[in-house]
């Protein structure tokens, strides 16, 4: 049985924990709104890019001279997994669910006899992958000091990926991130970046354009940009998902702390009353004995 003083200390400590978690929840809510706005604002560019590229890619699909980013290297031996996670924890299962998807994917590729290389974005993903897949980690992008991800960050990552592709380090690149559906649901996704794959329906109703320079030159110019755009989108989705997951996790934590405080308070009151009753009995029985 803990003493009254111990109980009081515990109640105070849980109360301050609750203060912190509820503050974190509110901060996450504010950041989530900003992250959602950023994701919203980035949509027009990504959509136009995708439509134009899908249209061009359809035309160039069968061509011998199509850019390598579109038709691939002709092999399927080495896979690069780009795993984008958060820099910070305390956001529920957000980081783990992305890593779990990536691990499953990597394990399947290895079982098929393929070579797997992993590029991590965000500290948490790297930490979780290091133990089992440490040998496969080829590069890490640190976004620790970054408050809001900008296109420039995505462009840097894309440059790194493309340089490795040009150097023949891998054949297929897949990007792992978490798609933001709502505060309660963030769904980990895998998207193939290289060779580029497009939604069949996208850009199907586009008019017959004239191109300057010719279609393949445009395609060669746009495909690297599209890699950057897709990474940028993934980073934005991740940012929104992270804040959403953190908000839900902190909401839970705040509620749990509240429950715990109630339970401890009841226990505290009971012990206090028990102590009073005991003292009274002692006094009364003492008086009776006289």
């Amino acid at each position: 049985m803990p003493s009254l003083k111990d109980l009081k200390i515990r109640i105070e400590s849980v109360k301050s924990t609750r203060k912190i978690t509820s503050a974190m929840k509110m901060v996450a809510a504010a950041k989530l709104r900003r992250a959602q706005e950023a994701a919203e604002a980035a949509r027009p560019y990504a959509e136009r890019m995708e439509a134009v590229l899908a249209n061009l890619a359809r035309g160039a699909a069968g061509s011998e001279t199509a850019p390598r980013l579109l038709k691939g290297t002709g092999r399927d031996d080495t896979h690069l997994l780009i795993v984008a996670t958060a820099e910070r924890g305390l956001c529920g299962g957000f980081n783990s669910s992305i890593v779990r998807l990536a691990k499953a994917h990597a394990a399947r590729l290895v079982a098929e006899g393929k070579t797997v290389k992993i590029l991590t974005v965000g500290r948490k993903g790297r930490e979780q992958l290091r133990r089992e897949w440490g040998r496969h980690l080829v590069h890490h992008v640190d976004l620790a000091g970054v408050r809001t991800v900008g296109y420039a960050h995505a462009a840097d990552i894309a440059r790194e990926v493309l340089a490795r592709f040009d150097a023949g380090e891998f054949d297929v690149a897949t990007l792992f991130f978490s798609e933001f559906r709502s505060v309660l649901s963030q769904i980990p996704q895998a998207r193939q970046l290289i060779p580029a794959s497009f939604d069949e329906a996208a850009g199907a109703d586009a008019p017959n354009y004239e191109y300057e320079p010719d279609e393949e030159a445009i395609l060669a110019d746009l495909l690297p940009r599209s890699v950057a755009t897709q990474i940028f989108r993934a980073l934005l989705e991740n940012a929104a998902s992270e804040q959403g997951a953190r908000m839900a996790a902190m909401d839970n934590a705040t509620r749990n702390a509240g429950e715990m405080i109630n339970k401890l308070t009841i226990q505290y009151n009971r012990s206090r009353q028990a102590a009073i009753t005991k003292e009274l009995i002692e006094i009364i029985s003492g008086a009776e004995a006289l």
């Binding site: 191109y211 300057e212 445009i218 110019d221």
Partner: peptide, 8 residues
């Protein structure tokens, strides 16, 4: 009313 055109 420009014809459909795409340029870098």
């Amino acid at each position: 009313a420009h014809a459909p055109f795409l340029t870098v």
